[in-house]
Simulated assay, not measured.
Amino acid sequence: MAIRARRMLAALTTAVAMSAVSIATPAVAADKKAVISQAFQSMLYLPLYVAIDGGFFTKEGLDVTKQTAGSPSAALSAVLSGSADFSLHGPEWTAVAAEKGADVDVIANVVNGAAVWIVASPDSKFSSIKDVKGQTVVSGQMPTTSTSLFFKLMKENGMSPADVKLSQVPLGSEIGPLVAGQSRIAVMYEPGADQAVAKGMKVVIGFPKLYGEYAFSAISAKRSVDPDVAARFVKGMEQALVFMQNNPTETLAIARREFPGLDPEVVNAAVKRMLNEGVYPKNVDITPKALTVAMDTQISLGNLKQQPKYTTFIEQNYIHQALAAK
């Protein structure tokens, strides 16, 4: 667990070093093309898929190619090395890189809620987080935000990780031990939460409602990114987010096409939950509060030394252009 985290941070540090010695000249867009490197193919990133599949980037005269890196650090490293124009992952990775001297910042919101839920077996008596004490709890392997938020919530309620028997498993496999009865409680992302609900489990805590605005996932870019390409990209994302709020039926159809291997009803339920609970933002803006709440989690875990300066870390220029273009 600790070794894996160190390896990921080491890879990111190497990429930062490579970025620092590169020639800081703006990338030139050939025929207005752009590459985005996403950490994973994730339902959280649905706004990006809507922007692509719904033709919103095309409307802005931008041909976007999506690549999947396999981890947040690898996605950001693609931007730092110049093999991608943009990356999509938690903004904490960008904050860590910027703190180490990389010329990167955040240019648009994608996920604005703490998209984590605690799910329990149907016969579990659960009235508050304190009911997890002494229980076996399944959660994703660190480093991951779901487990980090679980630790944060326990700490806020006078508890520590030692108060539970934590079983860390690969992300996406949390449902297995829960359904098998090896645990009565699991900490999950979507679509895992609604896959569990479909099997009779119940959602007992929703972190989006607990924490409100939370900069969970965002678009990052180097400061030397082609400004015209970046402006077009953020405008495309803005149109996609507005579309999602106003056209839930069409949004669900895009989600089902993007995740054909999942039960369509689970996809529908997961997307509806995230729309209803404000996980998908209404626009590309990131407020100071959303950034502060998210970065406080990373500071408390020791991943970040201090809050990034909002006015320089969040590139407002592209956001303002996108909001003004409505």
Rank of each mutant, 00 (worst) to 15 (best):
R4V: 11
A17H: 11
S22M: 12
T25Y: 09
T25M: 10
A27K: 05
A27I: 04
V28G: 03
V28Q: 13
D31L: 04
P47R: 00
G55D: 11
G55I: 08
F57E: 01
Q67E: 12
A69R: 03
A69E: 04
S71K: 01
S73C: 06
W93S: 02
E99M: 09
V110K: 06
A115D: 14
V119L: 11
K125Q: 14
F126E: 06
F126K: 08
F126L: 08
S139T: 14
T144W: 00
F151W: 06
L153V: 11
G158T: 08
P161E: 01
S167R: 13
L171A: 13
G172P: 03
V179N: 00
G181Y: 04
G181N: 03
R184M: 11
M188A: 04
P191S: 07
K199Q: 15
I205G: 01
G206L: 06
F216L: 10
S217R: 01
P227H: 13
D228P: 04
A230D: 10
A230R: 10
A231G: 14
F233K: 10
M237A: 08
Q239C: 06
A240G: 07
P248Q: 02
T249K: 15
R257K: 15
F259N: 00
P260F: 05
V266G: 06
N268F: 02
A269C: 04
V271Y: 00
L275F: 05
V279H: 00
D285A: 14
I286G: 03
P288F: 11
L291R: 01
A294G: 04
Q298L: 09
L301W: 01
Q307P: 00
Y310A: 01
T311C: 06
T312Y: 11
E315A: 12
